[in-house]
Simulated assay, not measured.
Amino acid sequence: MQLNDEKKIRLEYRVEPGCLGPQGLSHIEDFCRYANKHIKSPYYAQFLFTPRYDKQKSERQYSVNSRNLSQVQAKLYFDHFQINIVEFEEQLDELLSKAIDLYFKR
């Protein structure tokens, strides 16, 4: 199944510099570039990893066709594909953890 880009759910995942350790602030920009290149999005989604400098903004922001979605709307989107959003987010967190390990081992 192939979706065109405007029908895919887009997840902007704002990564906390602190998750990269005490020197995270000096690594966060480069790590986000690394994550964008190495963490592959599923067919129904597009991932965008960005630094989270502003704590007022949520860690995850879902959107479709440039329109932000509430958590309820995002859940409905995932329900359409018979995907549990909580499990999806947990798996993505694991992928991010592995990417952090690989980033520092390169």
Rank of each mutant, 00 (worst) to 15 (best):
Q2V: 11
Q2E: 15
Q2I: 14
D5R: 09
K8I: 00
I9W: 01
R10M: 07
R10N: 12
L11P: 13
E12T: 10
E12N: 03
V15R: 01
E16I: 02
E16D: 15
P17E: 01
C19K: 09
C19Y: 05
G21K: 02
G21H: 05
P22L: 05
P22E: 13
Q23I: 03
Q23H: 14
G24F: 03
G24M: 02
G24L: 02
L25Q: 09
S26L: 11
S26G: 03
H27R: 07
I28A: 01
I28P: 03
E29A: 04
D30C: 03
D30P: 00
F31Y: 12
C32G: 02
C32T: 14
C32D: 06
R33L: 09
R33W: 04
Y34T: 11
Y34N: 08
Y34D: 11
A35E: 14
N36G: 04
N36H: 08
N36I: 07
N36V: 07
N36K: 06
I39F: 02
I39W: 04
K40E: 15
K40D: 15
S41R: 05
S41M: 03
S41K: 05
S41P: 13
S41Q: 07
P42M: 02
A45V: 13
Q46N: 07
Q46S: 05
L48E: 14
T50P: 00
T50E: 14
T50H: 00
P51Y: 11
P51W: 01
Y53I: 09
Y53P: 08
D54H: 08
D54Q: 10
D54S: 04
K55E: 12
Q56I: 00
Q56A: 08
Q56T: 15
Q56Y: 14
E59L: 01
Q61A: 00
Y62Q: 04
S63W: 05
S63M: 08
N65D: 15
S66V: 11
N68F: 10
N68M: 05
L69Y: 12
S70R: 04
V72M: 08
A74N: 12
A74Q: 11
L76N: 15
Y77Q: 03
Y77N: 01
D79L: 10
D79G: 07
H80R: 10
H80V: 07
F81E: 04
F81C: 03
Q82Y: 13
Q82V: 02
I83F: 01
N84F: 09
N84A: 05
I85G: 00
V86S: 08
V86W: 06
E87L: 06
E87G: 02
E87Q: 11
E87F: 05
F88Q: 11
F88E: 15
F88I: 01
E89F: 04
Q91E: 13
Q91T: 06
L92H: 14
E94A: 00
L95Y: 08
L95P: 01
L95M: 00
S97H: 06
S97R: 06
S97W: 00
K98N: 15
A99Y: 09
A99S: 15
I100F: 01
I100W: 00
I100H: 02
I100V: 11
D101Y: 14
L102V: 06
L102P: 01
Y103P: 14
K105L: 10
K105D: 07
R106D: 15
R106S: 10
R106I: 06
